[in-house]
Design a protein around this nucleic acid. Structure first.
Lengths: 212, 212
DNA sequence: CGGGATGGTGATAACTTGGTCACCATGGGT
DNA sequence: ACCCATGGTGACCAAGTTATCACCATCCCG
């Protein structure tokens, strides 16, 4: 349903986005024309119609600044990753949550729900959300989201020559040793944050209340 | 600089806020009048001027829907709490961060930076941000932000009769035993989440890069 | 009592904005 | 050669919107 945008159309869309971020209101056609150096508001009007046709925006008819962005807001939360599927495949996405990507550096791209306690001693517990920056480059000592074979795992990375280690931070788990010239190791991203929802699990005992 | 808003003015402001949240654009005066059941747009206009005088909004002159909300966005991050000062006193606020209050339940009110490792075994580490819901009521077993004397502390709460315990989750620290009939125990809020910025501390070793 | 802030109706002028028409130019595909 | 989508200029009208005027009522406070 979503035809590809032309370069110019993507430019218009980006302009709308940044105008919205800066002023808090959608731009009018004359304002867009001025910013983009276009003399006629009709050119803008036709661009907006094209963006509507391609599903990028909605236009409220006869309403000043009636432009609505139709992008999905928030970051996707990835659950169990199906074997071999790309991280952001629909089957892996459990929902979208309003986490600001700019709260973390480098910029957050998605959330990954952790299962198991292999990173317990780093304060990453079962059910926690790892905030992930998507990249295929990682440095020694960083916590990475890695794909080994068809498994996706979160571990601390250590590389020496052609040898790589994926190190859990829990003595009950074993370090995974890899030979980069033989084994496949794909870096999916690096962990830039952790989010835990303390009220998510089973409710606490219904004991008496305390007020102060 | 901020005079108190009247009930009606607060209602107008709330209407603007929710209109913005629902439609993505600020309301026009006729739209506000219709929602609030007011016949004349002039009444709205004067309300908006009052809101400008009181510092709640900004108005861009001669611009359709030129209403800007001037609220501080995001949640305040509380650092070291000065003895005896209220939690949200300016001297305690280290900044504001774009965390969506509705991401947690019950609603998040502020962030509290943890110092020390007394809750290490719950996965709450030194420097982590605790997401706090402000309330003076807590239940047994919840992690609370409590004030004992002039100290603010984060611990798990346990109450039996008139005895209360503030329990760390790290065997290296000691449980604080309180007699509610003698000692002062103020509940400032309950912890509803944890946020950790993994890239905050010292940068990782500048080892060689790995790409895949 | 009088003044001032608040909250409102009703009407009007001036400006902003959306919608539309005629016309032109370029580039890709048939 | 032709059509069609894209990208643009220029002009115009209708409708949406802001700004301002006159006038009214209530409440609080010095």
């Amino acid at each position: 349903m979503e035809t590809l945008l032309t370069a110019r159309q993507a430019e218009i869309l980006a302009t709308i986005r940044s105008f919205l971020a800066e002023t808090g209101r959608p731009p009018s056609r004359p304002e867009l024309a001025k910013i983009l150096g276009i003399a006629s508001t009709n050119a803008i009007h036709k661009h907006l119609e094209a963006l509507v046709r391609k599903g990028a925006i909605e236009l409220e008819p006869h309403v000043a600044r009636g432009i609505r962005l139709l992008e999905e807001a928030g970051l996707p939360l990835i659950g169990r990753v199906a074997a071999g599927s790309p991280m952001l495949a629909i089957e892996n996405v459990m929902g979208r949550y309003p986490v600001d990507p700019s709260l973390f550096t480098p910029r957050a791209d998605y959330l990954l729900q952790v299962s198991g306690l292999s990173m317990r001693d780093e304060g990453i517990l079962d059910g926690d959300w790892i905030v992930v920056h998507r990249t295929s480059e990682a440095r020694n000592g960083q916590i990475v989201v890695a794909r080994v074979g068809s498994d996706v795992t979160v571990k601390r990375l250590k590389v020496r020559g052609s040898k790589a280690e994926l190190i859990p931070s829990n003595p009950d788990f074993q370090t995974l040793h890899l030979d980069l010239e033989r084994d496949s190791l794909e870096i999916e991203g690096i962990a830039v944050g952790v989010i835990r929802n303390l009220m998510a699990g089973p409710p606490p005992s219904r004991g008496r209340r305390v007020s102060a």
